[in-house]
Write a protein that binds this DNA or RNA. Structure first.
Lengths: 112, 112
DNA sequence: AATGATACCTAGAATTTCTATGTATGATCC
DNA sequence: GGATCATACATAGAAATTCTAGGTATCATT
């Protein structure tokens, strides 16, 4: 753990994945690496959280996948957002913003 | 629900309670009302979440209580932070800041 | 006398995330 | 060639928190 104890994901994993897929199709493992890199390992995506989440969101119709090959010729499931997923992303992002703002209020940070 | 669907607490309840008690002793019901007021009902504290949390944190030695009377002469459990609780508050607040910053990074908000 | 707000409590369900595994293959190093 | 590491997928079961849905009691108000 290069940056101290990693943060728990506190129910934001779906949002983080949806947002990552908003930039274009990607496979599960790549999504995890992308989030970790962007946050400099502050957020760590366990595979035991990642794959169940992808499975759930596929079932809910927020994302879909097709089998493909990665750069290094490995079999991958390439995920992408559906229209429903894009709507869901907007909703979850708005919810997060409201939530984070509210918490900041309680913590006494003057955010406005 | 005056302000739309209330946000889930996503593991921040302990932090919110500790922070509220940092301003001085208060009883459970009052803590809940304080958080709801401060956030204009964005965060809603269910009693089924509140009391178990107070119980857990008492057991962990982060808070302690004594029976007392409220302004309107009701029996209350007046909670206050312990030294351990103050340390815990600092830790959880730092963790939250790191976490919120990391999420903002993924969401593409330029916070630095 | 009834109602609503205050104030406490608990059981059980739901959900998410984590820990701990397992499998398989491509790439690298000796 | 063989070992090892990173990539890539997956699942079972545990752990933790929060929610739903009840319950009790008292004070104040209508």
């Amino acid at each position: 753990m290069p940056k101290g104890t990693p943060e728990l994901l506190k129910g934001t994993l779906d949002l983080l994945i949806l947002k990552t897929l908003d930039s274009g199709p990607l496979h599960g493992y790549g999504i995890a690496r992308s989030i970790e890199t962007k946050t400099e390992q502050t957020l760590q995506i366990e595979e035991g959280s990642l794959y169940p989440s992808l499975y759930r969101m596929t079932n809910r119709g927020w994302i879909e996948f097709e089998w493909g090959l990665s750069d290094n010729s490995r079999k991958i499931k390439s995920y992408r957002l559906t229209a429903k997923g894009r709507k869901r992303l907007k909703l979850e992002q708005a919810n997060w913003d409201r939530f984070a703002f509210a918490v900041a209020r309680v913590l006494g940070e003057q955010t406005a």
